[in-house]
Write a protein that binds this DNA or RNA. Structure first.
Lengths: 151, 151
DNA sequence: AAAAATATTTGGTTAAACCTAAATTTTTTC
DNA sequence: GAAAAAATTTAGGTTTAACCAAATATTTTT
């Protein structure tokens, strides 16, 4: 309905999965691949791709494939940034092993606000990688502007 | 359907609201009160009370009122414990003001695991109150047993 | 080019969370 | 204590998300 509306949790999950496979792992993203990872039928994946396309996050050509748009890429990076900053928080404050930190982060990353992510980021001096060494995408506002999210 | 099934996010919200009004504030909980706080119609509140009753979390007598069961009380305390431990984490690590910490915690508390709550609890030496001085309900396992959630 | 594999479309289901309007029960007021 | 007002519940919806199976369409392999 709303062309550029916000993402649901599942849509966010599909989007970041596509991003990681496509951009970080340089693999082709097929309907079947995604359906196996998320344990849903291929039909469900197709439906999800269509929804992401309607929101201008991917370009979707039936039978051919899916490609992230600029907005889709930015959105995925934002989501992964939040995830990886949460991992960082858990490791730094409570000595979580990276894998456990990742599991915990996965449960809440979608619900975590940008402001919280930025505050974690500032607190730990804008880390460039998460505990498992994956990139934490820089956020201009967080790095360069005064962080007044807290006060 | 499932009599003792898990809570949805909204159900958790209704339950903790009832708990706070009834147990912490010693107020009578009416359909209208809840409907005003959550900005839904009274009919929706009734429906929610019925669902909580089906899951044995409250005793619900139509037109008369609602009363938390032992299970309902325990469940509400668990949820509030998680919320307040998250608040604690944000204040201790990032110097959040309590009110902001509360807002952030509200977004994620339902999705946060028991294990994470326990780890925060252990890390900060089992605090008995949250930053806004509300009770953090004790958890026997967390306080007395060796905490092996991390390793 | 036929068969096999992959992907999409069609036409559903289920569950959560809400609503309005009508009916019921309780409470208030005269 | 009966009538009116207020509160609550019931009945009968809607919407949206997320899934599915079966049929159809397309692409790839043999």
């Amino acid at each position: 309905m709303d062309i550029d509306g916000t993402l649901t949790r599942k849509e966010a999950q599909y989007l970041t999965l596509v991003y990681r496979k496509q951009v970080e792992d340089c693999n082709r993203v097929t309907t079947t691949t995604v359906s196996r990872v998320l344990k849903v039928t291929p039909a469900t994946v197709t439906e999800s791709f269509q929804k992401l396309a309607k929101k201008n996050l991917v370009e979707y050509t039936p039978y051919y494939g899916i490609k992230l748009t600029e907005r889709g890429t930015a959105e995925a990076q934002k989501l992964l940034r939040r995830h990886r900053l949460l991992e960082t928080l858990f490791v730094k404050t409570m000595n979580y092993p990276p894998k456990k930190a990742c599991n915990e982060a996965s449960k809440i990353d979608y619900y975590c606000s940008e402001a919280l992510a930025n505050n974690i980021c500032s607190t730990y001096n804008h880390p460039v990688v998460c505990p498992c060494k994956k990139e934490i995408y820089a956020d201009y506002d967080c790095k360069h502007l005064k962080n007044d999210a807290v006060w």
